[in-house]
Design a protein around this nucleic acid. Structure first.
Length: 376
DNA sequence: AAGACGGGGGC
DNA sequence: GCCCCAGTCTT
């Protein structure tokens, strides 16, 4: 019943198979919407839909799996229940509430977005993509997601889930994060949302389908509402879909951490405002591209210490680095700097590995306590 | 156009 | 180990 417009052919470029992909956008949209209405998960941000719940959940969900977001979202909403509360909060408190989620820049951008909403939009989350994308940390995807899911606007969205689903339905080869593929997917998603009965249901359904039924590695085609319309399945080519065309290599960096303890207190310093773990706190740390022994480390410390000794080391992986934490202990007579008591530690934003290091340092010494990470 | 940016879980 | 994930910003 669907006729293909001349422009459809043109906008799909030089891949004839791709054009056929969403030849029946109305059927695809209807199948996704019906499936989502039946099989969509119950999630905290789906219980009450407001611009603010959409804003917070979308920021947290950027490059982060739903299961990791759920507990953080609920905690965050209790701590900062409204845009105004978030805008008025201290940045350190926002970072601390983000603790453990990673990609901490998102926390700072969300805070900045809340302030912008108060200043420029009277404290109400804007409803259009054009307004939303003016907010810090809000790109094309997040803007479309908030506009469609919270406010029912008929706008498309493409994240890695949607791109992968469309790739498979179209029987197209490629990586879901490839810019050319993403551009093509936006085009297809636009056509789908125009054919949808309920744009919010379609968009959320496409993402949910990608996240649950049609993941990158092993899709569950028997459960898929699009199985009959899927070109990859018809071709018997439902293989893995890569996210990145070319993975980047990890570099190795050594963080020489010096734990300075005085009774129940630990000496802390703040990290730089850019880069890894920006603006978060740590025990005094010397970063170097190779392992330093104690004699090399001592002169690089800003603080005069005694009894500097290496305790243990362990590795921590981030997306672009292997961070080798070389943990030391030392004493000082200086009272300068920021000293944090155990009870106050929760208020300081700390990376997960740093939190473990400090927690270990405050654990009462026991000769039988097992070493929690490999020593060398 | 390519990198940087966290962390945990799947396999 | 490698790869993944409701992306965005910077260079």
């Amino acid at each position: 019943m669907t006729t293909r417009s001349p422009s459809t052919r043109r906008r799909n470029g030089n891949d004839p198979a791709a054009t056929a992909a969403l030849e029946r956008p109305r059927e695809v949209a209807a199948a996704v919407e019906a499936w989502f209405a039946r099989a969509g998960r119950t999630l905290p941000w789906r219980e009450v839909r407001t611009g603010y719940t959409a804003l917070v959940s979308e920021f947290m969900l950027q490059q982060t799996q739903v299961s990791r977001v759920v507990p953080k979202f609920e905690e965050f909403m209790r701590r900062f229940p409204t845009v105004a509360a978030l805008a008025a909060a201290d940045e350190q408190a926002v970072l601390a509430a983000w603790q453990g989620l990673g990609y901490y820049r998102r926390a700072r951008l969300l805070h900045a977005a809340a302030k912008a909403i108060v200043e420029r939009f009277g404290g109400r989350v804007p409803e259009t993509v054009d307004d939303l994308v003016t907010l810090p940390g809000v790109g094309r995807y997040t803007a479309g997601s908030i506009a469609s899911i919270a406010f029912g606007q008929r706008v498309p969205i493409v994240d890695t889930n949607v791109a992968r689903v469309l790739l498979r339905v179209a029987g197209r080869e490629g990586a879901s994060g490839d810019p050319a593929i993403v551009a093509w997917a936006w085009d297809e998603a636009t056509r789908l949302v125009e054919a949808a009965s309920d744009p919010a249901r379609l968009n959320e359904g496409l993402m949910e389908l990608g996240a649950t039924v049609c993941p990158a590695s092993t899709p569950a085609c028997l459960l898929c509402p699009l199985a009959a319309l899927c070109r990859a399945r018809a071709n018997g080519e439902v293989g893995p879909v890569r996210a990145k065309p070319t993975p980047t290599r990890r570099t190795r960096v050594y963080h020489h951490v010096v734990v300075v303890r005085r009774g129940d207190e630990l000496l802390l310093e703040r990290r730089a405002s850019t880069g890894l773990w920006a603006s978060m706190w740590q025990a005094p740390t010397v970063e170097h591209d190779s392992l330093l022994d104690v004699d090399e480390l001592a002169p690089r410390l800003a603080l005069r210490v005694t009894g500097l000794s290496r305790v243990r080391e362990f590795e921590h992986q981030t997306s672009h680095r292997t961070v080798v934490f070389v943990v030391h202990e030392a004493r000082t007579r200086s009272r300068d700097g920021t000293w944090a008591a155990r009870a106050a530690l929760a208020e300081y934003p700390l990376s997960n590995p740093m939190r473990r290091i400090l927690a270990d340092a405050l654990t009462p010494p026991s000769p039988n306590r097992p070493v929690r990470a490999r020593s060398s």
